[in-house]
């Protein structure tokens, strides 16, 4: 045995046991996940309020640098963010698409009766950029904070207990009721039901479809109501009403509050610049 190799001495009581190589330590959670929920709610809330005020196109790159920095600190995959940003709502898409064509007098490009106008384009860019930045900030808040912790933080800022308990119970049963609804629709299709009517041409087909769908919604409501009675009894047995349903929110560490202070200062700076400072 070469002398430079360390000799492993195994104590007698450990001989014969098998050791697996030590498991790698789990990666440290991303910084945004370590930001405590209450300070995070205050900080990101202030940034969202400030971003909602931005009306100057020149400020948008700054806002997006800020959002990109926070996204990098969140550890969330970029694909997840792009998927969320791809569904901002039909109304926003309609505005962003139409504004450059209808608002303003400075024509940049013309094709037949269609004209691209600078003023409309500027407003569309501002509106779209601001909306997507707000969506990204909201995504950061909800994706890096577990819902019970977020609800507890909301309680700490004064949202009533009854409203938060309603939210907690709703999210608890949302997926189950969604699955039940899909099962009901699948069963109806297997029995040969197909929606045939159209609101565009209301006729006998639609007059058959709507009462059927109303009965399906009524059935879902009846099942949910019956279940709610059982849920209430079960919750009472577990002491519901005597102890809080949601965990108490801790105040947060100094680092978290320092980050919130920084976020609030940036938000105030944005508002100051927007107001013409």
């Amino acid at each position: 045995m070469p002398k430079d190799r360390a000799e492993v001495v195994i104590s007698p009581d450990l001989r014969g046991r098998q050791f697996s190589p030590p498991a790698p330590l789990p990666p440290s959670p991303a910084w945004l996940r370590r930001w405590r929920p209450l300070p995070k709610l205050v900080g990101l809330g202030a940034l969202m309020a400030a971003c909602a005020q931005v009306r100057r196109l020149a400020l948008l790159p700054l806002v997006w640098v800020l959002v990109a920095l926070l996204w990098a600190l969140s550890g969330l995959p970029l694909r997840q963010g792009l998927r969320r940003l791809a569904a901002p709502g039909a109304l926003l898409i309609a505005f962003v698409a139409l504004l450059p064509l209808v608002v303003g007098d400075t024509i940049l490009w013309r094709w037949g009766s269609l004209a691209l106008r600078w003023e409309g384009l500027e407003r569309a860019l501002c509106l779209g950029g601001r909306s997507l930045a707000l969506l990204a900030l909201a995504t950061l808040l909800v994706e890096t904070t577990p819902l019970p912790a977020l609800l507890a933080a909301l309680r700490a800022v004064g949202i009533p207990d009854l409203l938060l308990e309603l939210a907690w119970l709703t999210q608890r049963y949302l997926q189950e009721i969604g699955a039940q609804w899909q099962q009901m629709q699948r069963a109806a299709r297997l029995r040969g039901w197909q929606p045939r009517g159209s609101l565009w041409r209301p006729g006998p087909a639609l007059r058959q479809d709507l009462p059927f769908l109303a009965a399906a919604v009524g059935t879902l409501l009846v099942r949910s109501y019956e279940r709610s009675e059982r849920v209430y009894q079960a919750l009472r047995l577990r002491g519901y009403g005597k102890a809080p349903l949601l965990p108490e929110e801790r105040a947060g560490d100094p680092c978290s509050w320092a980050a919130s202070g920084l976020a609030v200062a940036v938000a105030l700076g944005l508002v100051w610049v927007q107001l013409g400072g």
Binding site: E165, T170, G178, W200, S224
Partner: peptide, 20 residues
């Protein structure tokens, strides 16, 4: 609250019903 929560969840789900 349980009744309101379950009915809210049911409305949330049923409002996804699309009419052509």
């Amino acid at each position: 609250l349980p009744k309101a929560a379950l009915l809210t969840a049911a409305f949330f789900v049923a409002s996804s019903l699309h009419l052509p």
